[in-house]
Amino acid sequence: MKNCVPRIDAEACLGCGACAAVCPSGVLGFDGRKASVVAEGCIGCGHCAALCPAEAVTVSAGENWTAAFATIDAPGKVVAPGEFSPAELVDLMRSRRSCRCYTSDPVPGPMLEDLVRAAVTAPSGTNSQAWTFTVLTSRAAVMRLGEAVAGFFRRINKLAANPVVRKGYALIGRPELENYFREHYPSVAAALVKWDRDRTDLLFHGATAAIVIGSVPGASCPTEDALLAAQNMLLAGHAMGLGSCLIGYAVEAIRHDKRVRAAAGLPTGEAVHAVVALGWPDVTFLRHTFRRRPIVRYQTA
């Protein structure tokens, strides 16, 4: 985060040097008696202010937007490592599932905003916080985006159905269309038939809201930042009683078609990394399901 300026109250400083030791950018120094600002380049992480026992350090980084939530009564406690139940956290993570059955009830605007607040408590590379969130607050807005996504895939399917076009792309080193035809064409074609027939929604599955997570230029790892924010949003949504699902097809359509971008209400110049469908679940899961053992490697030296 740019334009951050740490300030140290020399009179209040106890001389512990903790702020300088924790500064990731080398902006703060410690001469054995007092801490001071010794360089530029503060990324606004706030570590120094968060650990100063005398509250002698402040970081001017604008409004603390996550200081209060509208629909969640958070007491504001700082939870230190080891102070939260890992068992409860694991149960939350295992219980959250991708929801594809929603009621028709809308999600209140304050809840959607609180989901964004929860999302931006995630870490970001060099603390860039370059996220953007485009919130579709109604079923009508979700359907409008769904129609634009359907139009994109109609055009892609038309291209992919032509073997000459597929082979031509492959010959110039572009096998994506051939891969798409093999892996996605049949299911997308079937979904489009149902959508065109009676608006059966196999994309957003009846969700009454959605949030598009993007980024403005300047972040060091914007995709990773957005997906970390999305995971926060998914877990917070589950805790709030909402269902959620990541919609990868919508991401691809927005990335490749300006008409879909316009339907989502996105300006030019923003990258898109995730689309989260949201709504009140019309299904109750009674137990956890399995996860395969991943490839895990350990190195001891």
Results as ranks from 00 to 15, higher is better:
E88H: 11
L246D: 00
L177D: 09
A209E: 07
C13H: 01
R292P: 09
I43L: 06
L89E: 03
C13F: 05
W65Y: 11
Q129Y: 00
A148F: 11
A68I: 01
A190N: 11
N3G: 12
A236F: 03
G214H: 14
A209V: 02
A140E: 15
S60C: 07
T137Y: 04
T137W: 01
R292C: 14
N64I: 14
V193Y: 06
A207E: 06
R293T: 15
A170F: 08
R7S: 13
Y180R: 13
C13K: 02
C99V: 03
C19F: 05
R182G: 06
S95C: 03
P163K: 06
G32D: 05
V120A: 00
A122R: 03
S128N: 11
A189D: 14
T103I: 12
L227T: 09
A141P: 05
W131V: 10
V296N: 02
R287Q: 12
D257Q: 14
K77Y: 14
D105N: 09
G241D: 04
G46W: 00
A39S: 07
F69Q: 01
V37Y: 01
E40V: 11
G41H: 05
G17Y: 05
E40Q: 15
G62R: 08
S98H: 02
I8P: 03
P217S: 10
T200S: 11
I247T: 12
I247S: 09
G82F: 04
R97Q: 11
A236L: 03
S60R: 08
A56H: 05
R100M: 00
G146I: 07
A61L: 05
T223Y: 12
P186V: 09
C245L: 15
R139H: 15
P75C: 15
G206P: 03
L92K: 08
S128K: 15
S36A: 13
A250H: 14
R287G: 08
S36M: 07
R7L: 13
L266S: 15
R7C: 06
A207N: 08
D257T: 10
A253R: 08
A271M: 11
D257W: 10
P186D: 14
R154T: 11
S220T: 12
I211N: 00
C4N: 11
A239P: 01
